[in-house]
Simulated assay, not measured.
Amino acid sequence: MSQNTSSTTESASPYRDLEQQSIATLLQYINQEDQTVPLAIARALPQIETLIAAIVPRMQAGGRLFYIGAGTSGRLGIVDASECPPTFGVPHDRVIGLIAGGDSAIRKAVEFAEDDPTQAWQDLQAYQPQPEDILIGIAASGRTPYVIGGVSQARAFGMLTGCIVCNTGSALAKAAALPVEVVVGPELISGSTRMKAGTAQKLVLNMISTVTMIQLGRVVDNKMVDMQLSNHKLIERGTKMLVELLQIPTVEAADLLQKHGSVRAAAKAFEENNMRQKG
C-alpha cells in the first residue's frame, strides 16, 4: 500500500472491512499494531535524550515544565503533569499541562479550540511564563495551530521548546528547538490517533517526566521517596520502604512516616538521630 510519508497519521489503514471481522481478529490486529510502538520510540531515543538533557538544568535552576496539546494529546499532557506531584512530591506548579479549550476540554471536546494559533500563548500568560521555563508541544499530526503557535511564541520568548509528534518534517517539529518524532505509521482506524500515536505520546511523556525527576534527585535507588502519602496504600508502601531502607520494625517505620510525612524526611530524621546518639 502506498503511504504518504509526510502525514502517516492520516494515511489509510492497511486493514479493511473491520466491521466484518470477529472480536478475536480485531483484538489481534490492535495488539499487532501496538507492538510496533516501542520499536518506533527506540528509534527516537537520541531525540528524547537530547530533550531531557536540556530540561534538567533548567528545572534545577527553577524553571517549570509545560505541556500543551489539543484533544487526546492535551489530555495525555495533563495526565502526566498531574501525576508528578503525588509520585515525586514536586509542587503542582512545576509540571503543568494545558489543553486547547481549557479544562472543560479534558472531558468534552471543544469545537475548533485547536485552530487558534494565538490561544496557547494567551493561556500560558496565567502562569507568568519565564525564559527559564520549558514548553513541550504534543500533537500527533504536528500541524495543530494551537500547539504550533504556542511553541513558536514560547521559543521567541526564550523558553526551551520541544515537541512530541508522530510524523516527520512537520510544522511543529520545525517550530520546536528540540523535536521528538515517533513515527508509528497508519492507525487501525484511519486517522484515529488516540490509538498508536496516543500510546507513543504517553510512553514518551513517561520517559520525559520520570527520567527528569530521577535526574532531579526525586528517586533514591528505585524508590519514590518523595511520594505524597494520600491514601492507605501509599502509606503502607512508604512504611515498607522505610523497613527496607533502615532495617527497622514495621511499627517503628510507620511511626516515623506519620511523624515526618515522607519517606525521605523520615529516613533523614532516623539517620540524624542515630548520628546524635553515636556522637
Rank of each mutant, 00 (worst) to 15 (best):
D115T: 08
D115R: 05
D116Y: 13
T118M: 08
Q119T: 09
Q119I: 11
A120K: 13
A120E: 04
A120P: 05
W121P: 00
Q122W: 06
Q122V: 14
D123N: 15
D123V: 11
A126Q: 13
Q128S: 07
Q130L: 14
D133E: 10
L135M: 03
I136N: 10
I138E: 01
I138L: 12
A139H: 10
A139G: 04
A140R: 02
A140W: 00
A140N: 00
S141P: 02
G142C: 09
R143I: 00
R143L: 00
T144D: 09
T144F: 02
Y146M: 14
Y146C: 02
I148W: 05
I148K: 06
G149Q: 05
G150F: 02
V151D: 01
V151N: 11
S152C: 02
Q153L: 15
A154R: 07
A154K: 06
R155Q: 15
R155E: 05
F157H: 11
F157W: 11
L160C: 06
G162V: 14
G162N: 09
I164H: 03
C166P: 05
T168G: 07
T168N: 03
T168Q: 12
G169I: 08
G169T: 05
G169N: 14
S170C: 01
A173T: 00
A173Q: 04
K174N: 13
K174F: 05
A175K: 02
A176R: 09
A177S: 08
A177E: 15
A177T: 12
A177V: 07
P179S: 01
P179R: 02
E181C: 12
V183A: 00
V184H: 00
V184I: 04
G185C: 03
G185D: 12
P186R: 00
P186F: 06
L188R: 02
I189N: 08
S190H: 01
S190W: 12
S190N: 05
G191T: 01
G191Y: 04
S192E: 04
S192K: 04
R194V: 06
R194L: 04
M195L: 15
M195A: 13
M195F: 03
K196E: 09
K196Y: 08
A197N: 08
G198D: 11
T199P: 07
T199W: 12
T199I: 04
T199S: 13
Q201I: 09
Q201D: 05
K202P: 04
K202A: 02
L203H: 01
L203Y: 04
L203K: 09
V204H: 01
V204W: 03
I208L: 07
S209K: 06
T210Q: 08
M213C: 08
I214D: 06
Q215Y: 14
L216P: 03
L216N: 07
L216F: 09
R218A: 11
V219N: 07
V219Y: 03
V219L: 10
D221M: 06
D226I: 02
D226R: 06
S230F: 10
S230N: 15
S230Q: 10
N231F: 06
L234S: 07
I235L: 06
I235Y: 09
I235H: 13
E236F: 04
R237N: 07
K240R: 15
K240H: 10
K240P: 00
M241G: 03
V243S: 08
E244D: 15
L245V: 06
L246S: 13
L246R: 09
P249R: 08
E252T: 14
A253Q: 12
L257K: 10
